[in-house]
Design a protein around this nucleic acid. Structure first.
Lengths: 358, 358
DNA sequence: TTCAGTTGATTACCCGTGTTATCAAACTGT
DNA sequence: ACAGTTTGATAACACGGGTAATCAACTGAA
């Protein structure tokens, strides 16, 4: 490839002159005649020069690369977060590097991040991230964790604030006359059951649901919360679409001794779809006989029949915010202190929820 | 950050010695005593050294970065291709850089690719790519285009081979007794209607369908091919889920003067789902009264009721092959000659297709 | 004793770029 | 005529690291 030296030779000037011109003549002490500038630009054009951003990054000490780290790409459900991150990155003049933990230890991967001299890291990984933060702090790389229920000791954490969406759902259902509302949770073990930590997302949603019910003075009989345990033992493409546990959880609600609920709120859309299918198998129409509400607003939610009422999580906004927050932290002095940024969820009313039957 | 010079100083040796040790002692003329090696490794460990992959890339002249270029991230439907590319890239020791054209001209973006000194580029972009290839050839960057119906003048092209899947569908339907089979196409204009070029994907599928019908000596009355024109004017998240055109196309088939088809084959899954919904509105049961088959196997296909019979396009395989083919071409001498690699599609029989009604 | 070979390391130059300090020549004012 | 300033450019060093060429000291054999 053509280098600045080649241009300098062709134009009969020094490499310094070339560098100054190609960087817009920003150097204080380097003034060049207009015609020299022209000659250099022309030589660069004729030779087909393309600047070497790597060498530039080495000299400048900043790469302008933001890493986006996921666990297992093939099981990653939230590429929309990455879409938001990519858009924001390009708007702010960064490039996005995709990295996955799969097949390596988290420590190895994060080490790779520091070796690449990333300007920042968006981490969309589950589980314990102490090693990640240790390594990133060593290299003074700002980290943002994304859609993560568990409070981190370091870095910024951006996650969807499920509370407003859940509140909206209960408002919606009560306005339709529903009082007996069941819930199908994630079945995740409560990993960090301290008050500061909200636990994993599934558990958090269940907690918020219970709290919202209490607030509205709605009764929640024992057994009105069941569990779809499909996702407990690792999230795989296969398991995400396994419906057996969701069907069982639905049956448990429908055959509840205190009478079945008139509405079922599910911790994720797939579960809601399975629940609707199981309700139909049991001879119930949705929404005429029973209402079902999901969570996430996956693309299938809108295509399903009936279109699913659900809580939309603002995935793209989360990704955008992650990168914007990184960019901001890069300008400031490095500060690993933990911060949490919540992005509110909103309820999307579609056709799977309706008035309570008499 | 700690550099090799820091280590050299601490261990009381030259930087060359450090470099040799940290690269596994691969240098011919540099032999080091075991204890010196130990001392260097220990110093590196104590100082928390992390090698600078950028500086390394500059010196070595290869970055090991593969670019993945998309048009508009927020409207990109095929992240699964990227997943395959990412997996293959990491297996082969490359990193993946995500780039989007959005907001820039293609020329600008590709220029950025050469400036980043990418080792290869996977291009998932629509439309004319002459500028892309010009620029990439200049920098001798191998390019692979992906899921692209239009034959390119340069580079490797990897795309799904729709023919086998379409053949499977017709075999499946005829075995179920269907003879009157309708088709809902993409409505795309035929952009490159020469024999060498297959046109865009939607048109290609329609052509393959027609040819497969002729091969099997099945009659295709005038008007048995209609069009869902939703996607013609740009692919957006909104338009992808707009069902009005699909419903009209379905109605046209159902009210065909020669009698409605007993099976409808759709060029994409979303269209198939809309077609099923429209059939139901017209009082037809699927699959008892009419069979519907889709194309792509999107995740909603399996969740829909009835689960959609469809042609699965091997998106992840396409991504894997793209990167593998890039890696291979990097080893060889640079050769921009065009090649096409087809990945066969397969039919997935689910519940939306059944025996022809008497 | 001398010379060749081996061991263990360094010096010096390379990759492509950014930037400060310096310099020569031309111009300006007195 | 001469000091001071401006103009136009370069030399030299930095970034972090790869590697061929070289060198000093030691070993063993003729």
């Amino acid at each position: 490839m053509v280098t600045m030296s080649d241009i300098a030779f062709k134009a009969g000037v020094s490499r310094t002159a070339v560098s100054a011109v190609l960087n817009g003549g920003s150097l204080e002490n380097v003034r060049l005649a207009v015609e020299t500038r022209q000659r250099i630009l022309q030589a660069a054009e004729e030779l087909g020069y393309r600047r070497n951003q790597l060498a530039r990054a080495v000299a400048l000490g900043r790469t302008g690369m933001i890493g986006y780290l996921v666990d297992e790409p093939r099981y990653e459900p939230y590429w929309k977060i990455m879409v938001g991150a990519l858009e924001a990155a390009e708007e702010l003049g960064f490039t996005l590097k995709l990295l996955s933990v799969s097949g390596h230890t988290l420590a190895e991967r994060v080490r790779q991040c520091t070796e690449l001299r990333l300007s920042g890291l968006v981490a969309r990984v589950a589980g314990d991230k102490h090693l990640l933060f240790e390594e990133a702090n060593l290299a003074r790389i700002p980290v943002v964790t994304v859609d993560e229920g568990i409070l981190q000791p370091f870095g910024t954490r951006i996650t969807s604030d499920d509370a407003p969406g859940i509140g909206n759902v209960l408002e919606h259902l009560t306005q339709l006359g529903h009082r007996k509302i069941g819930f199908i949770g994630s079945g995740f073990p409560r990993l960090y059951p301290t008050p500061e930590n909200t636990g994993d997302i599934g558990t958090a949603r269940e907690d918020l649901f219970r709290r919202a019910m209490v607030e509205r003075e709605l009764e929640l009989p024992e057994g009105y919360v069941t569990q779809d345990t499909t996702m407990v033992f690792g999230h795989t493409a296969e398991s995400a679409l396994d419906d057996s546990s969701a069907r069982a959880a639905t049956d448990a609600l429908l055959s509840h001794p205190a009478g079945r609920p008139t509405a079922i709120f599910c911790w994720r859309d797939e579960t809601a779809i399975f629940a609707i299918q199981q309700c139909r198998r049991q001879g119930l129409r949705v929404p005429e006989d029973i209402s079902v509400v999901g969570f996430s607003d996956i693309s299938a939610a809108r295509l399903f029949e009936p279109p699913l009422s659900t809580v939309r999580t603002p995935l793209e906004s989360i990704g955008r915010l992650a990168v914007q927050s990184l960019a901001q932290r890069m300008d400031e002095a490095f500060d690993p202190a933990p911060t949490t940024h919540l992005v509110p969820t909103t309820f999307i009313a579609r056709a799977s929820s309706g008035p309570v039957p008499h």
